[in-house]
Amino acid sequence: MIYQEWEDGFVVRRMRADDAKIVQRWYGALNPTACDLDIALACYPAEEKGFYIGEYQGEIVASAIRIPVCEGVYYGSYYYVEEKWRGKGFGRRLRDEVAAAHVGNNVLCIDAHDDLETMNQRKGYTNGFKVVLYKGAPKRLLREPPAGLMINQVSDVDFNKVIEYDNECFVGPNSPYRRAFLERWFAIPGGKSLTALDKNGQVIGLGCRRPALEGPHHLIGPLYAKDLDTAHTLIQILTADLDVDKDTIWLSICEPNEDAKQMVKDLQLQDDIHMLRMHLNGDPKEFKKQVFALTSIDVCGF
């Protein structure tokens, strides 16, 4: 599906599954990537706009996604132009002349690298909060879990109960996009998805782990929890089968969340990439203290 063509031969079209491999390779040079983009592509109908590829002379040169995550809110990521093709306006045309029209007046959230703050502000974005990607060994902590806390596989809990809890933590409730996304997210090969239940059987935590496409790396997110102790219990069980000496875990936190900052300190994780959550067309007020790790800074930063 071609969205727009220019006289110089530049074309913006819909991203395909095979294109995603190239885009993930671009981003994998910055930090480990998993199957996040593949999952997102599978969640939306083939005719759905929001997944963009820029092509020039038969070569893929640029990318971006602008996808709805709930009513009135979009998430943007994977904005990239291959280095040898920069300076020709390919990224600007893809983003401003094609993708922007799809977003319209809806709120758009992005996680921008620090050095892009001024440029994005000129385009109308406003600052939200800092987002930091952490990494480190899956350290074992000698902590007693909260009394009465039960950890179960997501598959052993009523999916509707999991969604009800996710509604409390996600940027917007009852999103059909989120529901379709989590159905696939919980089933990622080589991954692990857990829920935390209180003594009354109510869901008070949700944690997921997925393997990176390459290397001994594992990405954690979402990690939602009632409190710090519940978050620690989830992450300890999520990573219990990993090798402390060989494996590396990665997770992204919202810096205003003091409990999340304490969690990464307890785990002795190191900050790797600093980003800034920015908003266009309003502020969805997405920061929530239950969010200890974002789902994915690649496709769903909530």
Rank of each mutant, 00 (worst) to 15 (best):
K192S: 06
S77L: 05
R95L: 14
E47I: 10
R143D: 13
V12P: 05
K123H: 15
Q236H: 12
G76I: 00
F170M: 09
V157I: 12
P256K: 02
G207E: 09
V73H: 02
D259C: 02
I204H: 08
G190P: 05
L149D: 07
D266C: 01
D198E: 09
D266A: 09
K130V: 07
T118F: 13
W26M: 03
P216V: 00
G136C: 06
V132Q: 07
L94I: 10
D158F: 00
Y56H: 10
R178D: 03
K84C: 10
Q202A: 15
N120T: 04
F186Y: 12
W250R: 04
N120S: 09
A64I: 02
G89T: 03
G76Q: 01
A20F: 00
A231N: 06
G148F: 07
A112C: 09
I65T: 11
I204Y: 08
Y165L: 03
N200Y: 14
L269W: 03
T126W: 05
V98D: 10
D229I: 00
Y224A: 05
E7N: 10
G76C: 01
L242V: 09
F287T: 07
G91T: 07
F90D: 02
Y3E: 08
C208D: 08
E82M: 12
P216S: 03
P146C: 08
E71F: 01
Y27E: 06
P146I: 06
T239W: 04
I110C: 11
Q268R: 14
Y74I: 08
E5A: 12
F51E: 06
R14N: 15
N106T: 12
R14S: 15
I2S: 10
A62I: 03
Q270V: 11
P145H: 06
L116D: 05
Q153A: 10
Y177I: 12
P146M: 10
A46F: 01
I110M: 11
L37P: 05
A100Y: 06
V157K: 00
T295Q: 13
Q290C: 15
A40F: 06
P138Y: 09
K130D: 08
I163E: 01
E183K: 15
T33K: 15
D198M: 06
E82G: 07
K261C: 13
W250E: 00
Y56K: 12
A17F: 02
T195C: 15
L213D: 01
G201S: 10
M15S: 03
R14P: 02
L223E: 08
Y56L: 10
V11S: 02
E55S: 07
L234W: 10
K84P: 05
L133I: 03
T230Y: 06
Q4E: 15
L116S: 10
A17G: 02
L276P: 01
Y74V: 07
L41D: 01
N105L: 12
H217P: 04
N167H: 09
L213N: 04
M119Y: 12
L141D: 04
L238F: 09
P45Q: 11
K226F: 10
W85N: 13
D115H: 15
N31F: 15
S155E: 13
A101W: 06
P216R: 02
G28L: 03
L276G: 01
T233N: 11
L276N: 09
R140P: 04
D156L: 01
C169F: 05
P256E: 04
C43G: 00
